[in-house]
Computed example of a mutant assay.
Amino acid sequence: MTESVTSDAEIRSILESETIAVVGCSSTPGKAAHDVPAYLHERGYDVIPVNPFADEIFGRSVPDSLVVVDDEIDVVCVFRPSEEVSDIVEQVLERDDVRAVWTQLGIRDETAAERVLESGREVVQDRCMKVEHRRLVA
Rank of each mutant, 00 (worst) to 15 (best):
V23G: 11
G44T: 08
D64L: 01
T19G: 03
P29G: 11
I48L: 13
G24T: 11
S65D: 15
I14W: 06
D35P: 05
F58W: 08
V68Q: 14
D109M: 02
V78K: 01
E16G: 10
A100H: 05
I107Q: 05
S27N: 14
E18C: 01
T19E: 06
H41I: 00
K31T: 08
T103A: 13
I107S: 06
R95V: 05
V50P: 06
E110K: 06
A112Q: 02
K31C: 00
P37K: 04
P52L: 10
T111A: 15
D55M: 01
H41E: 14
V62T: 13
G30W: 10
V76C: 11
S26C: 12
D109I: 01
L15K: 08
T103V: 02
V68H: 11
E94M: 10
E84K: 06
T111D: 14
L105I: 13
A54W: 00
S61W: 00
I48T: 10
Q125V: 13
Y45M: 08
G44H: 10
S13N: 14
E42M: 03
E16F: 00
A33L: 03
I57D: 06
V92E: 04
T19A: 13
T103S: 15
E42T: 02
T103H: 01
D109A: 07
G106Y: 07
A32T: 13
D64H: 13
D96L: 02
Q91T: 12
A21G: 12
F53Y: 14
S13A: 15
S27H: 12
T28R: 14
D64E: 15
S86Y: 02
A32S: 14
L66H: 10
V92C: 14
C25V: 11
Q91I: 00
R12G: 05
D55E: 15
V67G: 07
Q104P: 06
L117W: 07
E18F: 03
E94H: 01
N51H: 07
D71F: 02
R108Q: 12
A33E: 03
G44P: 06
E16H: 13
D35H: 06
S86W: 00
I20P: 01
V68Y: 09
P81S: 08
E114K: 12
T28P: 00
E110I: 00
V62I: 07
V62N: 10
